[in-house]
Design a protein around this nucleic acid. Structure first.
Lengths: 246, 246
DNA sequence: GTGCTTGTTTGCGCCAGCGCAAAGAAGCGG
DNA sequence: CCGCTTCTTTGCGCTGGCGCAAACAAGCAC
């Protein structure tokens, strides 16, 4: 009942509730709670018990995994309409990742039990979830392949391009990535260090490809970046030190 | 009708058909074809149209992705009872990976349309698929994290331990990984080169941890390997060159 | 057997990227 | 405005791992 028509409209286009009839959609929405979390706080933390499914309504958050040695890996940014924390669908009910917000967030929440009942009642739901997972799986496979085979520069360029599609904001200067994004974040996204990210970005700035500020990146020349990210031919190599040291 | 009771028994415990009633299981089995593929041949190749879902009945195969630059990444080995090629559940119906057998294989096959009908009729199926995907997702996330943060030695050790659980064969000498497995394969699994894999394995052989032959690895001291793979403390570093050059 | 293919081994040189250390610089709270 | 925290930048030295080249070995076809 608390859900506004706007929120329901979002749910409709979301992976979870696509192709549901209006009354089914209402049932799904009615079964949800809304939960709000402040900037920098967590929806859940790695290792904690997992018995809820989330769909983000407003805001943005990051899913990351921390190793025992305090290394961190940033697996995914989640934006409005996206599903996250769908771990009740695994045997051990423990969150493998942490979900930390990047700004104020609001999300739909279903308990594992509720969601299971909904899935039994509306077979379209597990099918939708399956599609969403498959898409995510492909993305992850792509990142894995990239990490295994591509040099850093490419990986960072590609990460920036993805962020731009997810959260790009057209300004007069260029395409601003509209969220706080530190070099550390980029490093954790691309399996490198903040030092290397800094050198890469600095070199690109010198060449007029991007503009950088504190936790802020603007893409000035998207085509150029794409070329670095994807172009399989010509300048396949643009190593970090060459770029940084001249 | 062609399915033997043995085959159906396998299907039953498989991710796909778990918790189905006997008559439902029969319907699922009846809707499947059986397909056989020789050693080294493909169930499907990267880039080809994807409109089928597979469950492997006998044999073993590998899923790999090749980049435009001819680099290859080995994403997963598939054994009996496991699902693969479940790409009809994504928008663009193109296989992102190749499925090459490692020995003679036999698999159940459903067309995308058939499977979709089955999923609508038996909601337990998409739920099962969702569970299977989630498990796989976690594995991939783990490999990604490992590739991003751990040194080669660890990654190779961990790959071997996983292979041992999937396809280990207890012999008098030790735990034989019961499939043809080249250094190249291991390199593609762990995001390194065959040279480095060779050096690592050679060093371990010298220390009595493993025994190596042509496309054959036997684990002699599983505990030692596990220590290298997982132990977060003590000898967190066992770099390749130190190990190889003394 | 002989030759061929495919996989393994190793020396050697090298370089992409790491990571410490230390100095800026941007923002925030009071 | 001041001090503190967090983020960014850069010099510098170093090393883990790459990758060529070339020899060796195991199996397979005939």
């Amino acid at each position: 009942m608390i859900e506004t028509s706007h929120a329901i409209a979002l749910l409709r286009v979301t992976g979870l509730a696509r192709n549901l009839k209006p009354n089914e959609l209402a049932a799904v929405a009615d079964a949800a709670q809304l939960r709000e979390v402040d900037t920098g706080a967590f929806f859940f933390e790695q290792g904690s018990a997992a018995d809820e499914v989330f769909v983000l309504n407003r805001g943005r958050l990051k899913l990351s995994e921390t190793t025992p040695q305090r290394h961190r890996v940033l697996l995914q940014f989640v934006g409005p309409g996206e599903l996250f924390g769908a771990t009740p669908f695994a045997e051990d009910q423990v969150h493998p990742v942490s979900a930390q917000t990047v700004r104020w967030c609001q999300a739909f929440v279903w308990s594992g039990k509720t969601m299971h009942e909904l899935m039994i009642s509306f077979p379209q739901i597990p099918i939708n979830l399956l599609y969403a997972q498959s898409r995510r799986m492909r993305e992850l496979q792509h990142c894995y392949r990239e990490l295994a085979t591509e040099p850093v520069g490419r990986r960072v360029a590609h990460a920036l391009m993805r962020l731009a599609t997810e959260a790009g904001w057209k300004t007069e200067a260029g395409l601003l990535i509209d969220m706080p994004l530190s070099h550390q974040d980029l490093a954790e996204m691309t399996g490198t260090t903040l030092y290397t990210v800094c050198r890469v970005l600095r070199a690109w700035k010198r060449h007029g490809l991007v503009d950088i500020g504190r936790q802020r990146v603007t893409i000035l020349h998207a085509q150029g970046l794409s070329a670095i990210a994807d172009d399989p031919g010509s300048r396949t190599e643009w190593p970090v030190c060459d770029a940084a040291r001249n």
